[in-house]
Write a protein that binds this DNA or RNA. Structure first.
Lengths: 153, 153
DNA sequence: TATTGTTATACTCTATAACTATA
DNA sequence: TATAGTTATAGAGTATAACAATA
């Protein structure tokens, strides 16, 4: 393609000045790249990032109630419902009534949920390895540590 | 609140195991924190992150066409249209026909767009300062450099 | 034929308010 | 009164397909 110079203020295609020095913007773009690649990687398993995060959290804390799951993942109770339904109807998790608090539903992985999650974990590790191959182990630790220093609000 | 121990596999509320060691997940959470704080900061100006990014890019490259704007910001042409309309109807930018390519529309900030963007930049810098106060200048540079090492796809 | 801008559409994510059943 | 789960709804982001005008 040939550069056009017929407009008064046209400049070389510089990325955009201030924008490119903003941590928030660069963070958002980097995160979008990761998400997009995650989606491609997980497509065969039909797991989006949220669903994977939910399964991981339920596996780490079997019997967790929806409210706690939502709090930990930053998802509101109301928005969690259709996601829980999605995992339930795919037989990846199950809800069991809590005998001591009949408002609460405890969440557990099913056998199939556990199996799928194991497959997913392999894919996720491969995905991270693929996206982060330019970063040494030390750099990855540094990146995580620096991310943690961003204000929690 | 008192911990309940009446469910077989209940564990201490650990964040979630593998999940918390995934760069993609931590990146996504950090980015969400920044976005949320950005939204609060910019609320008085009515600028969302996308709109701010568009204004910045148009200011840096006056006369940019929609297609290029979309490519640079990672927004598809079709999705850009309502955003351009929003900025146009608020008199922050204007479209001018390109005499040499009558398919293309060149984008420019209006006077008011320029003024609003200047205000916005001050707020954004304050916002970044607020969110990143725990990071030294060197750490911020390191963070940006590490983000750049994440694969571009 | 390919490209620019556009319309239409659909899905996901996010946010809020209000309901129910329990506590 | 407060909490857990739910329903309904609306806004915003993102993706694809198809069209008109122009190259």
């Amino acid at each position: 393609m040939i550069a056009k110079r017929n407009v008064a203020m046209a400049r070389p295609p510089e990325p955009a000045g201030l924008l490119d020095n903003l941590v928030g913007y660069r963070l958002r773009r980097a995160s979008a790249r990761m998400m997009s690649h995650f989606l491609m990687t997980m497509e065969p398993l039909g797991l989006r990032p949220v669903l994977f995060a939910m399964l991981e959290t339920i596996r780490a804390q079997p019997g967790i109630i929806q409210q706690a799951l939502g709090t930990q993942l930053g998802i509101q109770r109301a928005n969690l419902v259709p996601l829980i339904n999605e995992l339930t109807s795919r037989d990846l998790i199950e809800r069991r009534a809590d005998p001591s608090d009949r408002r609460a539903l405890r969440l557990f992985l099913t056998g199939e949920g556990g199996r799928l999650l194991e497959e997913a974990e392999l894919l996720v590790l491969r995905h991270e390895e693929d996206m982060l191959e330019q970063l040494s182990p030390a750099e990855r630790r540094t990146l995580l540590a620096l991310l943690d220093k961003i204000k929690a609000d």
